[in-house]
């Protein structure tokens, strides 16, 4: 499975990272180097092996479905690059 330039463009779009056309080929080379290295996992027989999703044998804790936090919009907005009228402000969406 080798990544071509169109694939790099597609995953960069999925990841919302702008990449110059000139940078596509070097990035494809680096990604292919890493992917061909991790492909060694294909040698391992994993038939019937469950995926490990949690290293601690703990049940996910539950709690009552009630509001336990909040009520400080100033703190939430304090680091926003732009905030207006108590909201995060973003550029106009033109579709």
């Amino acid at each position: 499975m080798s990544i071509d330039l169109a694939t790099v463009r597609r995953i960069a779009h999925l990841a919302r990272i702008d990449i110059d056309d000139a940078a596509l080929a070097p990035m494809a080379g680096e990604l292919n180097q890493i992917l061909s290295w991790v492909e060694q996992l294909a040698q391992v027989n994993t038939d019937g092996v469950p995926p490990l999703t949690s290293v601690v044998d703990a049940e996910l804790p539950r709690r009552a479905d009630v509001v336990t936090d909040g009520g400080y919009p100033q703190d939430v907005l304090a680091n926003a690059p732009r905030a207006e009228h108590g909201f995060f402000a973003v550029p106009k969406v033109i579709e």
Partner: peptide, 9 residues
């Protein structure tokens, strides 16, 4: 998924 299985091993 493959990596998560190897992680189990």
């Amino acid at each position: 998924l493959k990596a998560q299985q190897v992680r189990t091993l």
